[in-house]
């Protein structure tokens, strides 16, 4: 069985997220859509690495950690309007 059909469906979902990033009215909308886009990209990476057994799974783990840190940093910045507190 090939894993091409779920990858195409997930690409459609990431296109919807890109629409929300482009026309989100406020900054938290864009952050939320970026987080969702990151999660969909993680699942695409895992499906790609299932077919060829290479290192994309480790990249997916590191990408999840970095995306979470970015979300928390941007939301803290929006709350306090000051970095380094």
């Amino acid at each position: 069985m090939t894993y091409e059909i779920p990858i195409y469906i997930l690409l459609a979902a990431s296109a919807f997220c890109l629409v929300r990033i482009a026309r989100g009215p406020s900054i938290p909308d864009r952050v939320l859509a970026t987080d969702t886009f990151l999660s969909i990209i993680i699942s695409i990476m895992v499906l790609l690495s299932l077919e060829t057994n290479d290192f994309l799974m480790d990249i997916a783990i590191v990408y999840a950690v970095l995306g979470f840190l970015g979300t928390i940093a941007v939301s803290k910045y929006l709350e306090v309007r000051k970095l380094g507190e």
Partner: peptide, 15 residues
């Protein structure tokens, strides 16, 4: 895998 991809399309549409 197939169910998860369809659920994520529905969620992105809700976004």
């Amino acid at each position: 895998i197939f169910t998860g991809s369809i659920i994520s399309v529905i969620g992105a549409l809700g976004l």
